[in-house]
Design a protein around this nucleic acid. Sequence first.
DNA 1: CCTTGACCTTGCCCTATGGGCAAGGTTTTA
DNA 2: TAAAACCTTGCCCATAGGGCAAGGTCAAGG
Lengths: 141, 141
Amino acid sequence: MLTVGRIAARTGLSPKAVRLYEANGLIDPPERTASGYRTYTDDAVPVLGFIRQAQALGLSLKEIKDILDLQRRGEQPCALVTDLLDQHLADIEHRIADLKALRTTLKRARAQADQAVGRGDEALVCHIIEGVTTPTPPEER
Amino acid sequence: MLTVGRIAARTGLSPKAVRLYEANGLIDPPERTASGYRTYTDDAVPVLGFIRQAQALGLSLKEIKDILDLQRRGEQPCALVTDLLDQHLADIEHRIADLKALRTTLKRARAQADQAVGRGDEALVCHIIEGVTTPTPPEER
DNA sequence: CCTTGACCTTGCCCTATGGGCAAGGTTTTA
DNA sequence: TAAAACCTTGCCCATAGGGCAAGGTCAAGG
């Protein structure tokens, strides 16, 4: 009999994560023993594996739930999946660009720090930060 | 007299953010009017500006607080600042690398999706996700 | 049989940075 | 003087769980 701890260990998740997925509707509530223990069947293992995979691709629990809901209703989730993957791909491009811009800004700040050492110029708190021109506020998405 | 809304507008922040910074100890609690309104002096403006700049560099409120605490105790925060910038720089390199790896994985999933369309192979939920080999779990830091 | 340790249950607080709303008081403007 | 615009505090929301508490349950060993 698969308890929550055992199925968690088998799928590489924590028991807490498994319970969370149940609470969020990603997996069906399993049967319970008389004393209230969750008892999973082997059928639940690949679903949890799928969740892990999808999470590794950057999908949120909400998005994964939407996919699984479609599938449970007998519909093809693949169109949704490709849409989501495309969105995340675009998002990742965005974030990489933002991080690269931020890296440039940070490097400029660092260079300025080394240069300003010993020059002893004054600033409200620290010229290293205050002297930095932030080009475009990296909008997180 | 600078109310919270006015100083927020002047610094490009929201009133809520300004109150949050006060609650978290980044700025000193301002005087209050008899009716309880916060009344800021112009001295608070550049501090809030500093917070904005530091945030734009990716520093957390906690880190910014540490910098400001040092400065308020009359010590030079610049060593801490350079440390933090170096840490964030390394962190950003890491995250860029992770995102690039994830992008590669996502692109492979997408390519597989296009290729598998019409091939009609079966999977638990969607072969697009299940067929993807996740190379290294992108460890978020 | 009993104990001990490992497991399970629910529930609550915590993370970071605010956004949004509610209920109520104050100030400013028309 | 009345309405609009502002302020106050407090609470809930978001992500994806981690950690802890209090208490119930199960399996192995003595």
